[in-house]
């Protein structure tokens, strides 16, 4: 019986301790929020905010991302969004964008995936980094709220197709291409010859179609009429503050501002966990090693050359 009595006293002591902790925590909260360091919360559990990072040109080109090899930006982002969407703890997602845009299809796929999450009532907030132009902004437009730094380069709403014309160089070097083709336009945008007027019109039609889709999607995502977007949609770039004036961005602020906004939109507490996809230093090293070993050689700025094809892109090309 004596043992039972001591157990009971221990239980009472624990109950008293929990009461003291509760009073302590509530008092800290009342004293101006207290310090996050003192607040009792377990990291990584419970409802929180997911983070997806979109860095660099958005393209489907690249490996499938198996093993050590990094996947293409688009594939990696789509998989990450799938993971976040399937995670019941994720009530909001911050999309951190640091990209000049990319290919039309890759950008549209990410946009559609974000809209799908939005329809599932997951709150989306875009946080724009150094550059979130063209396709980078296209993706941001799918979010409920956009936060940009005052110095962020954004805008550049438009479509571009770039192909080098090396005909003169080929002639100078005496290089001739043997081309056997099934139709007149099969080697359209080939680097070894100039573009004909019909070919130019054909590409222009595609560009116009992609441009209109761009405007429609911004209008849908931002819930503003296309006519209000069109004056800013001539390919011009702008800073974050200008973008707020143009109503392309909701507010200026940092990544933390975006996190705070995401929590507010999803009605989450201030200390709710953040599920970021940043790996451990070892994981980053291994991925970087894999990328260095397996990445195909490329000439920067000439994306179409490393894949051998010209591309129509939502991309800011300074």
């Amino acid at each position: 019986m004596d043992k039972n009595r001591k157990i009971l006293v221990a239980i009472l002591a624990l109950l008293g301790l929990s009461a003291m902790l509760a009073v302590f925590e509530i008092s800290l909260t009342l004293q101006g929020g207290g310090s996050e360091h003192y607040r009792l919360s377990a990291p990584g559990l419970g409802p929180g905010v997911g983070v997806v990072r979109i860095t660099g040109p958005i393209t489907m080109a690249g490996t499938s991302g198996g093993g050590l090899m990094p996947g293409s930006v688009a594939e990696t982002v789509l998989k990450r969004l799938d993971d976040l969407g399937n995670d019941s703890r994720v009530k909001a997602v911050v999309v951190r964008i640091n990209s000049p845009g990319g290919t039309v299809a890759a950008t549209q796929e990410i946009f559609q995936k974000l809209m799908l999450l939005r329809r599932r009532n997951i709150k989306l907030v875009a946080s724009l980094g150094d550059v979130a132009a063209s396709g980078g902004y296209y993706i941001a437009a799918a979010c409920d709220h956009i936060v940009a730094n005052p110095g962020t380069i954004t805008g550049s709403i438009g479509v571009i197709a770039v192909s080098p014309n090396l005909q003169g160089l080929f002639e100078k070097l005496g290089i001739k291409m043997n081309v056997i083709k099934s139709g007149a336009y099969k080697d359209i945008l080939a680097a070894y010859r100039s573009l004909s007027e019909e070919e130019r019109n054909l590409i222009q039609t595609m560009i116009d179609s992609s441009y209109n889709q761009f405007l429609r999607d911004i209008s849908l995502g931002r819930n503003i009429p296309i006519d209000d977007i069109r004056p800013h949609a001539d390919g011009r770039v702008m800073g974050g503050a200008q973008a707020v004036e143009a109503k392309l961005v909701n507010e200026t602020g940092s990544f933390d501002t975006a996190l705070e906004r995401a929590r507010k939109l999803a009605d989450l507490p201030d200390n709710s966990p953040v599920f970021d996809d940043i790996q451990s230093p070892l994981g980053q090293f291994i991925t970087a090693l894999g990328g260095a070993l397996f990445r195909p050689p490329r000439i920067d700025g000439l994306t179409n050359i490393d894949t051998g094809a010209a591309m129509i892109e939502y991309r800011y090309r300074p």
Binding site: L15, S18, S41, G48
Partner: peptide, 17 residues
Amino acid sequence: QMFLLPLAYVFKVISFA
């Protein structure tokens, strides 16, 4: 009913409903 506080506290700390 005195156990309500520690029990609720655990789920508050782990932020699980």
